[in-house]
């Protein structure tokens, strides 16, 4: 094992130790791991392909059965496909959209905030104006319009969706990063970094950014939460392509087409995607809150000391 991978293993162990200090956090980590494993299983092709669409009342919202175990244990959904399978198929795409969107949001927000705060002057004036304008445009509102007007082939593109869902989401992070950068600029370690001869990029992206690492990491996770909200929420409005693997579409169909209003026929089709979404959001929010601890050098060394 090389030093790098050993180091990585050590880091992961440490992160796990931080999580295991609180049962809620441990639970959240396990939940997230289950989702990631499920996504990998789908991507690697270990899951049977979605069976073809079967119209007709007799196939929709069938009760659970042991047929093709385990795929029919939640019964079928509105296209007559096994519900469990469609939910699992939704995981990789949702996670991909969420993660890509969070990367764009945090990447753009951090870069703009850092540059505006560190460079200052006219650059700051212009970037601040851009931030202030973007702040007045709610992401989901513009995303809604774009999702409606974009041609269908673009709407299903993961990268386009990620871009749409982060269209102005970067602004609030950029504002916070800018304010923190301006405060950090006055710190003595930045003066020292200058005399050491570090260039602006090194100071911005190593010294200043490292200081904000917990905040940035927290925002990365919270941006995932936001993107999942938008991705499923816009689908629930019926504005996304009606793909069976979108949890928002599944809830929409369970209420509008499954008679969830009057009977328990579609109860599994209603609650399964809801629990899938809420569980994921709950886990992500708890993990976001833990970022402070993960990056806290005092806690890290304390836990490392326990090992010895």
């Amino acid at each position: 094992m090389s030093e790098k991978s050993r180091n990585l293993a050590k880091q992961l162990k440490l992160v796990f130790k931080i999580f295991s200090r609180s049962p809620t956090l441990l639970f959240s980590l396990v939940v997230l791991l289950v989702y990631i494993i499920a996504a990998l299983v789908v991507v690697l092709g270990f899951v049977p392909p979605l069976p073809p669409y079967k119209g007709g009342w007799e196939y929709m919202y069938q009760p659970p059965s042991l047929r093709d175990f385990p795929w029919y244990i939640l019964g079928t959904e509105y296209t007559g496909r096994p519900l469990l399978l469609t939910i699992i198929y939704g995981i990789p795409k949702t996670l991909a959209v969420a993660f890509l969107s969070a990367l764009i949001t945090v990447g753009v927000g951090t870069a703009i905030g850092l540059i505006a705060g560190y460079v200052g002057g006219l650059v700051d004036e212009l970037l601040s104006l851009a931030i202030n304008v973007a702040l007045t445009i709610p992401t989901y509102l513009l995303a809604l319009i774009l999702v409606v007007i974009l041609p269908p082939e673009l709407k299903t593109n993961v990268l386009v969706l990620a871009g749409v869902l982060s269209i102005t989401a970067w602004a609030s992070l950029a504002r916070a990063v800018r304010a923190q950068t301006i405060a950090l600029k006055r710190r003595e370690f930045i003066d020292v970094a200058k005399t050491i001869g570090y260039g602006s990029w090194k100071i911005m992206f190593d010294e200043v950014l490292r200081f904000m690492a917990p905040f940035i990491a927290m925002n990365l996770v919270l941006s995932c939460v936001g993107a999942i909200y938008g991705y499923t929420g816009l689908a629930f409005l019926g504005l996304m392509p009606m793909t069976p693997d979108n949890w928002g579409v599944q809830i929409y169909m369970a209420i509008r087409g499954g008679g969830a209003l009057y009977s328990d026929k579609a109860i599994l089709a209603l609650w399964s995607p809801i629990i899938t979404i809420v569980l994921l959001q709950y886990a992500l929010i708890n993990i976001a809150k833990a970022m402070e601890d993960i990056f806290n050098p005092a806690l890290r060394t304390y836990l490392q000391g326990e090992e010895m």
Binding site: R187, E188, F189, D191, V192, T195, R210, F211, A213, F295
Partner: peptide
């Protein structure tokens, strides 16, 4: 560059002058 590397600084506050995460 020669000047930059040859003029160094020891600031007052040892708590604020070292990066806390390094």
């Amino acid at each position: 560059r020669k000047y930059r590397l040859n003029a160094q600084y020891v600031p007052q506050d040892p708590y604020a002058s070292l990066h806390p995460f390094k």
